[in-house]
């Protein structure tokens, strides 16, 4: 079963413990700039919003990679073959979640690898804002013919579904 990290921004405190231990686990140093998960914050509205790869089943990053450096492994995860990567950055541009980050040291993309199945960010998160879920996607058709109220409701409801680990893909 493919897994991915699901975030609950209402529980996230913005401590960035996930960023620290992600970079330490992968790179042996503490550096948010080497982390595969990033908390986007706004101190004027109290926002703390972790962004991390969702391993989408129809991944635009893989589609745009010109050299095949990005691929889907046998477990269904998006993976990078560093030696094939030309550091063009097309994948970073293509990700609609902004969940790929440029490594400031070697300029390749940083992508969540779920730490081999036991993600350190999930185990270290002090408030349970991060969890690992099996990938589950629901596909919604165009909602126009169900009326304006339905459209309003479903647009907002998507974010709730995402917190339950259910990705909503619009056709």
């Amino acid at each position: 079963m493919v897994g991915h990290i699901v975030v609950d921004p209402s529980k996230c405190t913005g401590c960035r413990y996930c960023e620290l231990w992600c970079s330490y686990t992968h790179e042996k140093v503490f550096s948010p700039s080497l982390s595969r998960i990033r908390v986007i914050k706004d101190d004027l509205i109290g926002m703390d919003y972790p962004i991390v790869c969702k391993h989408c089943s129809n991944a635009p990053c893989i589609q745009v990679c010109p050299t095949g450096a990005l691929y889907r492994d046998k477990n269904g995860l998006v993976k990078l073959l560093k030696e094939k990567c030309t550091k063009c950055g097309a994948c970073i541009e293509a990700c609609s979640y902004g969940a790929l980050f440029r490594n400031p040291v070697d300029l390749t993309p940083l992508i969540c690898d779920l730490c081999g199945g036991k993600p350190v960010c999930v185990s270290k998160c002090p408030t349970n804002a991060l969890s690992i879920y099996p990938l589950m996607e629901v596909h919604l058709g165009k909602s126009e013919h169900l009326g304006k109220q339905y459209t309003v409701a479903v647009e907002d409801y998507k974010s709730i579904l995402e917190r339950w680990g259910i990705l909503v893909k619009s056709e």
């Binding site: 405190t13 913005g14 401590c15 960035r16 413990y17 109290g46 408030t127």
Partner: peptide, 9 residues
């Protein structure tokens, strides 16, 4: 909601 300083649990 709660918020934390950097690296605080």
């Amino acid at each position: 909601k709660n918020r934390a300083c950097f690296s605080c649990i």
